[in-house]
Amino acid sequence: MAKPDKQSGRRYTEAEVRAILERALRDAQARDVGHDELVAAAEEIGISRGAIEAASRDIEHVRGEAEARAAILARRRKGFRSHLFSFLVVNAFLFAVNALTPGPWWFFWPLLGWGLGLAFHARAALSSDVSPRQLRRAIERNAALAQREEHRRLKERRRAEQLERKQRLERSAEELGHAVEEGVATVLSRIAQEIRGSAPPPPSPEDARRGRRIAPLGAEEAGMDDAESEALGEEEADRAARRGRGGR
């Protein structure tokens, strides 16, 4: 494939394009490039989106295999180190027991037997050969772990969003309650002002004392009028009775 240069008319082969891009990536500042940026950059030099998608899938597969291989080798070496530590501690203890007790030397027999097993373990642990079956199982395990991790992050994100939504609702309810309380207080204050404005003024101390003096007098006069009315009624009844006796 040849790529024309619009400015100088020069053309490059496929190998030259790859070498130029690799050199540019090495010389550029190290940073993570997004998938959309990679697709846009490839389309500028005439590479289709489908080719970029296929190449990215291959790269992801290769990356997954490399990570799985590294995890398998690391797990092997970790197991060998644990085995070696146990071998040294136990055989040192057996040597001390054999040296402190009378009798022939016998500690080298378990040392030789265990050492043979340790040698086979070291051969397997220090080897970089990984079978395709082990790689496939490791890739599947890593994919399951990544899926669980993504699910956990999604749950945490949802939980955080729900908590934030709940806090916003609580804040809104609290602000609404404060606003209602302030509004009710304002209305009650206005009603109280209107009631105070329409009520008659309170009596002065002199009017209060004068009213207390007039009230007993009015009560006494009302009592005298009732007694006089009763006396006049009795007198009228006596006169009517005498007239009736005189006529007979």
Rank of each mutant, 00 (worst) to 15 (best):
M1Q: 11
A2P: 09
K3T: 13
K6F: 15
Q7R: 13
S8N: 15
R10I: 13
V17D: 06
L21C: 12
A28E: 09
A28R: 07
A28N: 09
A28T: 00
D32V: 11
A40R: 12
A41R: 14
E43N: 08
E53N: 13
E53Q: 14
A55W: 05
A55L: 14
A55C: 10
S56E: 14
R57V: 15
D58S: 09
D58N: 13
V62Q: 14
R63P: 04
G64R: 09
G64W: 04
E67R: 15
A68L: 10
R69P: 05
A70Q: 11
A70I: 03
A71K: 01
A71N: 10
A71L: 06
R76Y: 13
R76F: 07
R77P: 02
R77C: 03
G79V: 10
G79W: 02
R81H: 09
R81V: 11
S82W: 10
H83P: 01
L84Q: 05
L88E: 08
V89I: 07
V90A: 02
N91W: 04
F93H: 04
F93C: 01
F95K: 06
N98L: 02
N98E: 06
N98R: 02
T101G: 00
G103A: 08
W105N: 06
W106A: 09
W106T: 08
F107R: 07
W109M: 01
W109N: 00
P110N: 12
L112K: 03
W114L: 10
W114A: 07
L116N: 05
L116P: 06
F120N: 03
F120C: 04
H121V: 07
H121N: 06
A124S: 09
A124D: 05
A125W: 03
A125Y: 00
S127Q: 00
S127C: 08
D129E: 03
S131A: 05
P132T: 05
P132M: 05
L135G: 02
R136K: 01
R136N: 07
R137W: 03
A138S: 04
R141Q: 12
A144W: 11
A146K: 12
A146F: 10
Q147A: 15
E149F: 14
E150R: 15
L154A: 15
K155G: 13
E161L: 14
R165Y: 08
R168D: 12
L169Q: 15
R171A: 13
S172F: 09
A179V: 08
E181C: 08
G183Q: 14
V184R: 12
A185M: 11
R190W: 01
Q193I: 06
S198M: 14
A199C: 14
P200K: 10
S204Y: 07
S204K: 14
E206H: 08
A208H: 09
R210I: 14
G211V: 04
G211Q: 13
R213I: 13
I214G: 06
P216N: 09
L217G: 04
E220S: 06
E221H: 05
A222M: 07
A222Y: 12
A222C: 08
G223F: 00
G223E: 11
D225V: 14
S229A: 07
S229W: 04
A231I: 01
G233V: 02
A240P: 00
A240G: 00
A241V: 03
G244L: 01
G246M: 05
G247D: 01
R248I: 02
